[in-house]
């Protein structure tokens, strides 16, 4: 099956949701004219990234009656969409979220599970931690979504792989940092390395959409890219510039790569679960064990 992807490397205006929505709708129209089947926007594409106290003013609910999601859901009758937004749940917790919209419906919402709260990041101050990592079915097969820091950790893409995702949709608002003698920033090199690593290790498509522009002193580097199940970069957007990257992928490549390299078939999930259990409890060797709860 062939699928034409679009990566919308946008520069959102901080906290100006109406302006960002208009920009989304313009790009959706352009993508549709170019035959895009699935169009992906970056992390927090509808709101901008470093919202601080503006988080609470820009939150939305992914339902048809929402003034932001209404037009997007309507547009999703023409092509599938991934958009980034601040998700306010029924209990008024705020999440960094991505929604997959298709055929006028919300197919899946992913709330970011890893909130970087170190160095220049302060997400944990403002946002609630998502607590689900789930693959979901689309009309192009099963996919999974992760947001920025989610894929700086190896476990979320691994879980999505086991949950049946053959296409990983990664979005980010990655601040550029680490200028040295290289022609790319250290942050860009790191993300591109893991994109290729996940595609190679999971013999899957890895699709990464990263924003551009500036917020105060932060720059966002773009360079969105599609990596095929062989770990080969199939397409990449420009650095630092707004762009709509349109590129067709062939999902039959999954058949060909996994015929050659059956890593998924041979993955020993039972062994993994057994050893993870042992590590977490430390029950077999008297060690205190490794647990993120400290208990």
């Amino acid at each position: 099956m062939k699928l034409t992807l679009g990566l919308a490397q946008t520069h959102p205006k901080l906290a100006d949701v109406p302006a960002n929505l208009d920009h989304h709708l313009e790009i959706i129209a352009r993508a549709q004219a170019q035959g895009v089947d699935l169009l992906i926007f970056p992390e927090l594409s509808l709101t901008g990234y470093n919202l601080q106290d503006l988080v609470y003013e820009v939150a939305a609910r992914p339902v048809a009656s929402d003034p932001v999601f209404g037009p997007l859901l309507k547009a999703s009758r023409q092509l599938d969409l991934v958009v980034g937004f601040v998700h306010e749940d029924a209990r008024h917790r705020f999440y960094i979220a991505s929604a997959y919209l298709s055929g006028g419906e919300v197919a899946h919402v992913h709330d970011k599970v890893y909130l970087p709260t170190y160095a220049l990041f302060d997400e944990g101050r403002y946002f609630a931690w998502g607590d689900r990592i789930r693959a979901f079915d689309t009309r192009f097969g099963r996919m999974g979504m992760l947001i920025c820091e989610d894929f700086w950790h190896a476990s979320p893409p691994y879980l999505l792989w086991l949950d049946g995702a053959d296409v990983l949709l990664l979005t980010s608002a990655s601040p550029g940092r680490g200028l040295d003698a290289s022609d790319r920033l250290a942050s860009a090199r790191w993300v591109e390395l893991v994109n290729r690593a996940y595609a190679s290790l999971f013999t899957s498509y890895v699709v990464h959409c990263n924003r551009v522009g500036y917020e105060d002193g932060l720059n966002f580097w773009g360079g969105s890219m599609i990596t095929d199940p062989n770990g080969v970069v199939a397409a990449q957007g420009p650095y630092f510039e707004e762009a709509l990257v349109v590129h067709p992928i062939d999902l039959n490549q999954l058949h060909r790569t996994r015929s050659r390299l059956p890593l998924l078939r041979d993955e020993r999930t039972g062994l993994m679960a057994q050893e993870l259990q042992r590590i977490l409890t430390g029950s077999q060797n008297g060690d205190p064990g490794f647990s993120d709860s400290g208990s």
Binding site: G176, L179, D180, A181, S182, Y214, N219, F240
Partner: peptide, 16 residues
Amino acid sequence: RLVIHTPLAEKILVGF
């Protein structure tokens, strides 16, 4: 370690 890629620095700072 203090050597910088000057075209990259220029690109980011001009944009900024």
